[in-house]
Amino acid sequence: MTARAATFHLQKLRRRPAVCGLLLLGGAVIATVAWQGPALSRGWLVAFAVWSCVPVGSMMLLLIHSLTGGRWGEETAAILRPSAALTSVVAIAFLPVLVSFGQLYPWAHAASSVAQDVAHQYLNGRGYAVRAAVALCGWAVLGITFSLGERRPLLAGLGLAFYGATISLVAIDWYLSVEPRYVATAFPATIAIQQLAAALAFVAVFAAPSLDESVASDIGALLLAALVGVVYLEFMTYLVAWYGDLPDKAAWYLKRSPSIWTASIVVAFAFGAVLPFCILLLRKGRRSRHGLRSAGMLVLFGTALHFCWLLVPAFEDQLDVVVAGAGVLAILGVGSMLVGSALIPEAGHVRS
């Protein structure tokens, strides 16, 4: 009887943070949908882009581990599974973006901003909503399914194919189309690898104390590979744009040439890429819990700056967008951490 009572109280305590987190997230979503201020809506888009990287990236890592296996997935399951389960919350957190898309995208209120056939057949409100719904619902189903800990290689393979197809569409819809005349074929791949890097960095920060040296080295190596992928794709995109010297591509980069945005991307590169690269390149750095955690925090910092550099210069009220985005990101982060803490499996149920 005492054991049952103790279990009941433990479950009750674990439920309270989840309820608080859901109330916080739900209240923020409802308030933003009701208000729909331009700066708040734009700030929400920026915050959503940064915050959603971890749940979606965690879902991808679970799918990859279901196909490849390895201790790294088993030892980090206590972090990856709750994070992947939050893909359902990602779908809810997208509602303010969907409701206020007219304030975010030029094509929503000025058809002349894109070619007529593109506006008619693809870049319109109905198509935007349908593609977002398909992607978010599919990711939520995959995230919840694999957060239960079952190994389903066939479903994992199909899920990765589904993710590859949907991220190729929604990355352009959600982020690139804030400036619809700019086109970059590598942009969806950059976003996908950025999500992987953010999820691995999140694991490095929160799972490092419990990892042995071998698993810590594996996580560090995966993070290093993802980091190199993001930098490579971003650099090659710039190089192709510079070499082609096309007006629309030049205009996109010129918007990001003022000193504040030049400084932000330099800081993101130096502290979010070069410094963690140097830490993770050394075997001792990857095996060190402090080194791995430091590299993870730097990558998360660089991810936030990178998305700010990508999105905020597209808007006029940039300072208001940054302030609103920082506040929304804090709310989303705290709320999801509270919900996720209640989803962390007990020690005896972490490994499948």
Results as ranks from 00 to 15, higher is better:
17 P>F: 05
17 P>A: 05
17 P>C: 12
17 P>E: 10
18 A>I: 10
18 A>E: 14
18 A>T: 15
18 A>H: 01
18 A>D: 05
19 V>A: 15
19 V>F: 11
19 V>C: 05
20 C>W: 14
20 C>I: 14
21 G>T: 06
21 G>F: 03
21 G>E: 02
24 L>Q: 08
25 L>W: 09
25 L>C: 11
25 L>P: 08
25 L>E: 06
26 G>L: 04
26 G>T: 08
26 G>H: 01
27 G>T: 07
27 G>Y: 01
28 A>V: 06
29 V>N: 01
29 V>M: 02
29 V>H: 01
29 V>I: 14
29 V>P: 00
30 I>M: 12
30 I>D: 03
30 I>Q: 04
30 I>N: 02
30 I>A: 15
30 I>P: 02
31 A>S: 11
31 A>W: 04
32 T>M: 00
32 T>A: 12
32 T>C: 09
32 T>S: 12
32 T>K: 00
33 V>R: 02
33 V>K: 03
33 V>T: 07
34 A>Y: 01
34 A>G: 12
34 A>K: 04
34 A>H: 05
34 A>Q: 11
34 A>P: 03
35 W>L: 15
35 W>N: 14
35 W>V: 14
36 Q>E: 07
36 Q>H: 05
37 G>V: 07
38 P>C: 03
39 A>Y: 09
39 A>V: 13
39 A>D: 15
39 A>C: 09
40 L>D: 02
41 S>D: 08
41 S>C: 11
42 R>F: 12
43 G>I: 11
43 G>L: 10
43 G>S: 09
43 G>F: 05
43 G>A: 11
44 W>K: 02
44 W>G: 03
45 L>T: 13
45 L>R: 10
46 V>M: 14
47 A>L: 06
47 A>V: 09
47 A>R: 01
48 F>R: 13
48 F>E: 12
48 F>N: 11
48 F>S: 13
49 A>S: 13
49 A>Q: 11
49 A>V: 01
49 A>H: 05
50 V>Y: 01
50 V>F: 09
50 V>H: 03
51 W>K: 04
51 W>I: 05
51 W>V: 04
51 W>H: 10
52 S>L: 01
52 S>R: 06
53 C>W: 00
